[in-house]
């Protein structure tokens, strides 16, 4: 059974194609989900990719959370379906209340775009299940609003329940406790600022992002036996790389 992952496309999303390719490489079938359609269809997992949904107007994610697809995403998450938000997708998940806390402007007030070493801090999430805790992955960050913040009680809960999923080796944005990614109590909703899809090919300098995407694919049904969809050529290149 090949896992099918839906990648939500908002107006202003710009990492959707990269993410579709990376997911196919990780063994999934991947398909876009238009934000204006109030359904997630038949997918096994939902991924909210990076970009600038609705122009990031007002606040990143503030308007995207009211897109018709988001009610379906919330229902899907409540039923235990895996939902992963990358960068802008993480911002959308916090705005939607599917993850606690908020993302603020970077402490430096600069856009950071650089490789980041992140340490797997928990294997309790669908994105890190089966990945060794303590493993360091090199995955790029690219954001202006990635400085995670939450109140002290939430922070204590996140730590106590193993819900801090990824932590920066060197904090690029001022995020509290070097947090790069968190999950909900059940572990099926995950948000992270680093971009795994940008670390999915040797040409990109790292394939560490595939470690996370494969964990997601494995968690929801396993990898494809044969390449499928429009990204076969890319998949084949990845396999021989």
């Amino acid at each position: 059974m090949t896992a099918t992952v839906g990648v939500v496309v908002f107006p202003g999303t710009n990492c959707d194609h990269d993410t579709l390719v990376a997911l196919e490489r990780a063994g999934a079938r991947a398909e876009p989900l238009w934000h204006g359609t109030p359904s997630v269809g038949h997918v096994d997992a939902v991924l909210l990719p990076g970009g600038f949904a609705h122009g990031d107007y007002l606040r990143p994610g503030a308007i995207a959370r009211f897109s018709p697809v988001m009610a379906a995403v919330a229902d899907f998450a409540a039923a235990g379906g895996p939902v992963v938000g990358i960068c802008n997708g993480f911002q959308v998940l916090t705005e939607a209340g599917l993850l606690p806390g908020a993302l603020q402007k970077n402490r430096s007030l600069r856009f950071v775009c650089q490789p980041a070493d992140v340490r797997v801090a928990s294997d309790r999430s669908v994105l890190t299940a089966g990945v060794e805790v303590g493993r360091v992955l090199r995955i790029p960050v690219a954001h202006f609003v990635g400085n995670y913040i939450c109140d002290e009680r939430t922070l204590a809960e996140l730590h106590a329940e193993g819900r801090v999923v990824l932590r920066y080796a060197e904090n690029p944005n001022g995020s509290i406790d070097d947090i790069a990614g968190i999950c909900n109590a059940a572990g099926n909703v995950v948000g992270l600022m680093p971009h795994p899809e940008r670390a999915s090919d040797p040409l990109l300098g790292s394939t560490d992002g595939l470690v996370l995407l494969r964990a997601l694919v494995d968690a929801v049904g396993g990898a494809a036996g044969v390449p499928s969809g429009p990204f076969d050529v890319v998949n084949d290149r990845a396999r021989t790389a």
Binding site: A62, F66, T94, G101, I149, C150
Partner: peptide, 8 residues
């Protein structure tokens, strides 16, 4: 609900 994020 929209203009602010009450978390911050």
């Amino acid at each position: 609900r929209l203009l602010s994020n009450p978390v911050i």
